[in-house]
Each structure stands twice: as C-alpha cells, then as structure tokens.
Amino acid sequence: MLILGFESSCDETGVALVDASGHATPRLLGHALHSQIAMHQAYGGVVPELASRDHIRRVLPLTDEVMAQAGLDLSAVDAVAYTRGPGLAGALLVGSGVACALAMALDKPVIGIHHLEGHLLSPFLSTDPPEFPFVALLVSGGHTQLMRVDGVGRYELLGETIDDAAGEAFDKSAKLLGLDYPGGPALSRLAQEGDPQAYRFPRPLMHSGDLDFSFAGLKTAVLTQVKKLAHARPEGPATLHLADPLTLGQKADVAASVQAAIVEVLVRKSLSAIDQTGLRRLVVAGGVGANARLREQLNAACARRGVRVHYPELHLCTDNGAMIALAAGLRVQAGLAAESLRQPAYRFDVRPRWPLAELSAGTV
C-alpha cells in the first residue's frame, strides 16, 4: 500500500511517499522538504500568514519531486495522509485541503494524522528501529512529554511540561543572547565554544519525584544573568536593551550553561521514566532530539544501565512528511485506520490544539 503524506503544521512543508505493504515496517520511497527559516528570520519567528502562503506555493512542486524520486505516477498512490493537528490553523488547512482534494480526485481514502504521533513513530524509519514497548521522550517545539508506548495508538502520558517546553527554553534563551532565528540550533552551535559550568542555572522540577517538566524559571534566570553581564538598563524582559553588549565568550558560556541545564533535566527525567516503567528501551523524537549534547548524555547514561536508545535520522528530526506517511502506514497495518479506508471523509478537518492523550487507538 503506497501512502502519500503531507506535513504543513508550522514552518516546514514536507511531502513523502511510503510503502506500507505487508507487515514489514513501512519503507520510505521518496521524501522532499522545504524549510521557511530564511523567510521568517527577518521577523525573529514564524509569521502564521506568511507560513500558510508559502505552504501553498511549495506543496505541489514538492509532490512532483517525491513522485519523481519514487519513479511513480500519482495514480499509484493508494491513500493520502496529512497532519490534522496540532499546529497553526492556517498552515494545517493548506495540508488538509491539498490532501483531501488530491484524494478525492484519485478516488482514494484520506487519513488525518496527529503531528506528535508522527514524531513519536519516526525512529521506525531509522537504520536502528525500536521495538514495542518503550518510553518516548517527545521534545518538539512547544511540547516536552514522556510517554509509555505499548504499540501504535497505545500511548500513556507519564509526564509533560507545565509551562515552557525545552524547545521554547532554547529559543527564548537564544533570543536573549541576540542569536538569529531559529534560536535553538543557533544556541546549540554557540554552546560548543563555551563552558557548561560557567553559570549554574536552575534545573526546575528535577527532584520533584514526578515526571513533569518546567522551563519558565530557567528562562527568567538566563534573563537575570544576561542583565548582570551586560549592565543592562532597567527595562523589563520585553524591552531588554544591552548597554554594554556581551562578548562572544560570555554568550558562549551562557549558551553552554543553558544547554547543560536543559539536557540534565531531560536526561534525569527520562531515566526516572525508565525506572518507573521497568522498560529497557527509550525513544527520543522531535527537533530537540537532534541536539548533540542530549544524545551524548543519554547514550552514556543509558549504556551504563543497559538501556537501548533510539533516535530518528537527523534529517527526520524536524517536521517532515515522512513521519506523517509512516504514522499513517503503521496505523493501517495495525488496523486502526479501517474507518478512514472504508468511508473516506473529504472534509477540511484540522485540530490546531490536540493533546496526544486524546488520540483514540481506534480512530484517526
């Protein structure tokens, strides 16, 4: 079964084709992605209206590129999948509209997929795919969650952020340091030049006894430290002006110390989830999962405990169509998309706010 997947939840337009025939893990046949980073840099963040318009421009050429990679015509597609949510409403509607229109034109079924389920299952496309059950650390954009995963559609929430997510902590700290958008990757690159022990930033909820996260206090601590270093004027966080700009060395030390704090919390909570569940496999997915220090620390800590760690391939850590097509394929194989296959509903149905815990195992 060939499934064409569309991802358009935020600032990446992704299209991919997978082969979900039989019971083997779906195989990626074609994959194309366009990032809007250059367009949004001038604004210091994603502008939803511009994101939606760019998805419209990119999605059909990317589809042609994917089908050319696979050496197939659109008529060979058996089902079309798209990101139903969560995400930016306008951006989601572009993917939904294209997917539903194409499926209707081809007289094929359409399957709406949860964005975070796509991330969670994306390591199944790696050279070292996991096996169920496992603990999943989802660190994607505004989401930081620990899940117990017993199978496709069988997810138990173990803990989540109560305010800012890890990705937001990276991005907001980067903005305080005057780094370019996207802040998280820029901060991680700068951190390689700094001392992770230069400043002792707080590790919120690390010893709380539960598996929840909180990074808002860390952002405030970074703001306070930046003001001290720069002798900033007394304006509030929204109007921070540096009277004496930080040196590159100071910025690198702050970046390294921030990264160390975030990574330590993520590693400690992940190990606690492993201990509480008794499982011996950990899956790390989402954009922050590409962070080199996080991978290094998790690999070392899990190796000492005899725990296997699995990641998506680096190019599949950010939002992409492959994870959406894959999730649809795995749901079809697990018998969880029967209704969508039997009675296609070609409606522009998106859910900008959609907790993963609400995802039903029986429907999509």
Rank of each mutant, 00 (worst) to 15 (best):
T83L: 10
A165R: 03
Y155C: 06
G141R: 04
T277M: 11
E296C: 14
L282H: 04
R353K: 14
W354T: 05
D54L: 15
S126V: 08
A51D: 07
E160I: 14
A81L: 05
R342D: 14
A260V: 02
G329S: 00
V139H: 06
A99M: 12
V307H: 01
N320W: 06
R308V: 04
C10V: 07
G44C: 07
H241F: 07
I3S: 01
G335I: 09
A273W: 10
L102S: 06
E296R: 14
G249F: 01
A216S: 15
R351T: 04
P234D: 15
L314V: 15
L158R: 02
G306V: 11
L316E: 04
I162N: 08
M39G: 01
H241C: 12
A338H: 14
H115D: 09
V364M: 12
A105D: 08
S173L: 07
Q259C: 03
L187V: 08
A174W: 09
G14P: 01
L176R: 01
A169Y: 03
L74E: 14
A285K: 08
A337G: 10
V283Y: 01
A191T: 01
Y199R: 03
K219T: 08
R295Y: 12
A32E: 07
K219V: 11
D19H: 06
Q41G: 01
A174C: 10
L246H: 07
A186W: 01
E313H: 11
L223K: 03
G14L: 02
R27P: 03
D150K: 03
L60W: 13
H114P: 11
F132P: 00
L116F: 14
D163E: 06
P196K: 09
A273C: 09
Y82P: 08
D275Q: 12
R295M: 05
R281M: 10
Y346S: 10
Y181D: 07
V307Q: 00
D210V: 06
G321E: 13
Q36I: 02
F134G: 06
R304P: 00
L120R: 02
S9H: 03
G153E: 03
E235D: 15
A255C: 04
G22V: 12
H310T: 04
T144K: 06
G118S: 04
E65D: 13
D275W: 02
L125R: 11
G306E: 12
L60E: 07
V47I: 15
L223H: 13
T277L: 13
D107P: 02
K108R: 15
E358N: 14
